[in-house]
Design a protein around this nucleic acid. Structure first.
Length: 755
DNA sequence: TGGTTGATACTATAGACAGCATGTC
DNA sequence: CTATAGTATCAACCA
């Protein structure tokens, strides 16, 4: 490790070769001197060199990234900022937009929020998730050909088995396309960052600098022993977590507790109420109450999260996990940042991603259930260190404390050895995984990045995998993936590597080829298009819609539902492979049942309660399903034309969670699940009915003059507003009407489902 | 007999990207 | 294999 360097002198900003305008923008952020890692990285970065910067969170990596991109943009090329999370994309976009003053055009692109291809061409800097950048590569965006600089944020996520390969492949493709591309890779401290730097031909900068010093240690028997061997007695009594929380609150700090289950995050937050509540000042209590109030107004439909959090927030406590909706998470994050919430209990949602520091981080659990092995497994040191790194708020805390909780002496020793003193894990390529290879091999061929075996091998040579190990070890995976792609008609027969139309479509839809096969089979099986449950089951059977966790109760309910049609399902097989297969199948049925209840307008609380999921999970499933249904619709245009229209309707129903009769109303801007139902109940079953309606009546129903006016304006024109129609193929004549869709309430049969 | 206690068995388990075209509650 | 906390179930036990 090179710079060790809290002691390093800070470098004044003006010593850098920066344009005065650029400097003044940075100065307006209150930055006048550089942290040591910045001072080390910026000179080469501003000279256009590639750099890998490995250092702790909040040590100023972003500034290096921004300046690299701005330099590239001012030099006439374009810059791309790759991030792993959508929330992060938004954060980076907001900050980079401040360089708009220089005349730079900054844009953002991700699944949620995208730009028209034309708007992209005018951009100087684009912030995108790596998947989105991959998608742009597949579609051949000319913008990328002018790329001068790419920033890869959180590059250590290359070790992620699912999403790592996308980052690795995207970086490889960009570098091959632009051999002189400047790469600025930002990484957490990992074992082999030097190796990654070598791969990228980047200067390797490794620093342990932290703007707020970190003391990490283990709590046992009322005292924290830190790695520097100092000891801290905790005089407060009680259970470990409340003690540690209370003692830091008494010093005016805040606490962030990491646990390994959602339930624990909720329960521990509840248990902390008596600990935190008495420490709140009158002002803090008012702020906390305001946050709770805001939460109530954040949505029209009640959720479990709103209910729990409105109860917790006024006590200065909250929890954070993926069962919360994005709106709920935002309220919690803001409240914590503004110190209305003083103790926050979180699952790993907060370990990576958005910056939410606290004076004391408490890592309560160091193991986590791993469903691949069906057991509790130790959390990697890298992740624990990331959690610990969240300790210490710049400007507020003189020092951050990270504490693991040990029950006995041997555990205490183990925590020091395995987590606090241990070197973090290496980054390893996951390109050899079959699903990853399926995706990327097809994409490389379909977008004509490779056209032959030899080119394919050359490509793999230039990946991180190829940098660290012989690509011959990939041969077996490549062979079996190729066989699959050949057999399923993704590739043209012959020695040259070329994609079929089906292959190109699959690649551009960003579907896992396996998903495309599942959907194609479902579509080819006759009149599936008209029965929502069958379609929902088909997308649920796809690897792009991961199965939901199946509880024993779900199993019972689902089996009972299908007993009439398939009584033999009740005889639950005992043999392991068969039992697992049935469970997988039931899990896809559960997903379909959840989505079905959603488009049957079951209230969110009822639905989440019945299936044991959170509103955030529901939201995520709905988004996934909508995306897959779009893919299914496009595939239907190829394989089962008649179904395409019905799928588009279903897609819209899933998006808004409405029954079929609301499809027309929901096409209006500003009208979704709740309001369309309201209009329907009040005697406006469709847009035609609204055309005749007096403003006052619509306003009374919608309880908003502005909204009522907007709605009436939308229906007054004889032609429907463009853009919200389901996408039908423009070339094709309108498909025949979908038939008696909603009246067909027959129970689905087993053969309706793929697999 | 009815209720309590305690041993034992069972149950559940983190997170979040992508298409398209613009704004759900 | 590298787990654990919370809950349901049921038998033993007591008044």
């Amino acid at each position: 490790m090179s710079a060790g360097a809290t002691s390093a002198r800070s470098v004044p900003l003006r010593e850098l070769p920066l344009d005065p305008e650029v400097r003044s923008i940075i100065e307006s952020w209150g930055i006048s001197s550089l942290y040591p890692p910045q001072a080390e990285a910026l000179p080469p970065v501003l000279a256009g060199e590639s750099v890998l910067l490995a250092c702790p969170t909040a040590s100023g990596k972003s500034l290096v990234a921004y300046l690299a991109l701005v330099r590239a943009a001012r030099a006439g090329s374009t810059g791309l900022y790759l991030v792993p999370l959508r929330a992060l994309a938004q954060e980076k976009f907001d900050e980079l937009s401040k360089f708009g003053r220089l005349g730079l055009k900054v844009g953002i692109s991700m699944g949620d929020f995208d730009l028209a291809p034309k708007a992209l061409e005018a951009l100087d800097i684009l912030v995108a998730t790596s998947e989105k950048a991959d998608a742009l590569l597949r579609k051949g965006a000319p913008w990328l050909e002018r790329l001068g600089c790419v920033v890869a944020d959180e590059v250590h996520l290359m070790r992620d088995p699912d999403r790592g390969p996308t980052l690795e492949v995207t970086l490889t493709r960009l570098r091959r396309m632009r051999p002189d591309l400047q790469v600025v890779a930002l990484s957490a401290t990992v074992g082999n960052s030097r190796e990654v730097a070598e791969w990228l031909h980047a200067r390797h900068i490794d620093s342990r600098f932290r703007p707020v010093p970190l003391k990490s240690g283990v709590f046992r028997d009322g005292r924290i022993t830190f790695t520097d061997l100092s000891i801290r007695e905790i005089s407060v009594q009680g259970e470990a977590v409340p003690r540690l929380v209370r003692s830091v609150l008494d010093e005016g700090g805040s606490a962030l507790v990491f646990v390994n289950t959602r339930k624990a995050s909720d329960q521990l937050a509840q248990a902390l109420v008596p600990t935190v509540r008495p420490t709140l000042s009158a002002g803090e209590r008012a702020k906390a109450r305001a946050a709770a109030l805001e939460l109530g107004q954040s949505a029209e439909e009640e959720t479990e999260g709103i209910r729990r959090l409105t109860q917790l927030l006024p006590n200065g406590v909250a929890y954070h996990n993926a069962s919360l909706t994005n709106a709920e998470r935002r309220v919690v994050e803001t409240a914590f940042r503004e110190r209305a919430v003083k103790a926050l209990v979180a699952t790993p949602t907060l370990a990576a991603g958005i910056n939410l520091p606290a004076r004391r981080v408490i890592v309560r659990d160091t193991t986590r259930y791993d469903d691949r092995v069906g057991l509790q497994a130790p959390i990697p040191a890298l992740e624990v260190q990331q959690m610990c790194g969240r300790a210490g708020r710049p400007g507020l805390d003189p020092v951050g404390e990270a504490v693991l909780i040990a029950r006995n002496a041997s555990e205490e020793q183990r925590f020091f050895d395995d987590y606090l003193a241990a070197p973090p894990e290496d980054i390893r390529s996951n390109l050899a995984s079959e699903p990853a290879m399926r995706m990327h091999l097809l994409a490389l061929v379909a977008s004509r990045a490779v056209g032959s075996e030899v080119e394919l091998e050359q490509f793999f040579e230039s990946t991180f995998y190829g940098h660290t190990r012989p690509v011959s070890e990939l041969a077996e995976t490549v062979r079996s993936v190729r066989a699959f792609l050949d057999q399923e008609g993704f590739l043209e027969p012959g020695n040259r590597l070329r994609a079929t139309g089906f292959g190109e479509l699959t690649s551009e839809l960003y579907l896992d080829p396996m998903s495309a096969v599942v959907l194609r089979r479902a579509l080819e099986r006759a009149p599936i298009g008209v029965r929502p449950f069958a379609l929902l089951s088909a997308i649920a059977a796809t690897p792009d819609l991961p199965p939901m966790f199946l509880r024993r109760d779900d199993e019972k309910v689902l089996l009972e539902r299908f007993i009439e049609e398939e009584p033999e399902l009740l005889a639950k097989p005992e043999e392991e492979p068969l039992r697992l297969e049935l469970e997988m199948f039931l899990a896809t049925l559960k997903t379909a049942a959840v989505l079905e209840a959603w488009i049957d307008e079951r209230p969110i609380v009822e639905l989440t309660d019945r299936f044991g999921i959170g509103a955030g999970d529901l939201r995520a499933k709905v988004e996934d399903a909508e995306w897959l249904l779009f893919g299914a619709s496009r595939l239907a245009q190829r394989f089962q034309r008649r179904a395409s229209r019905a799928i588009d309707d279903l897609s819209l129903r899933v998006r808004y969670g409405v029954r079929e009769e609301l499809l027309d109303l929901v096409r209006l801007k500003g009208i979704g699940r709740v309001r369309s139902r309201l209009l329907y109940q009040s005697g406006f079953p469709d847009r035609d009915a609204l055309r005749e309606a007096p403003l006052a009546r619509v306003e009374a129903v919608l309880r908003s003059k502005k909204l009522a006016e907007s709605v009436l304006k939308q229906v007054e024109s004889p032609r429907a507003p463009a853009g919200r129609e389901p996408s039908a193929s423009p070339a094709a004549p309108p498909p025949p009407p979908p038939g008696p869709a909603s009246s067909d309430r027959r129970r689905p049969r087993l053969e309706d489902f793929p697999g």
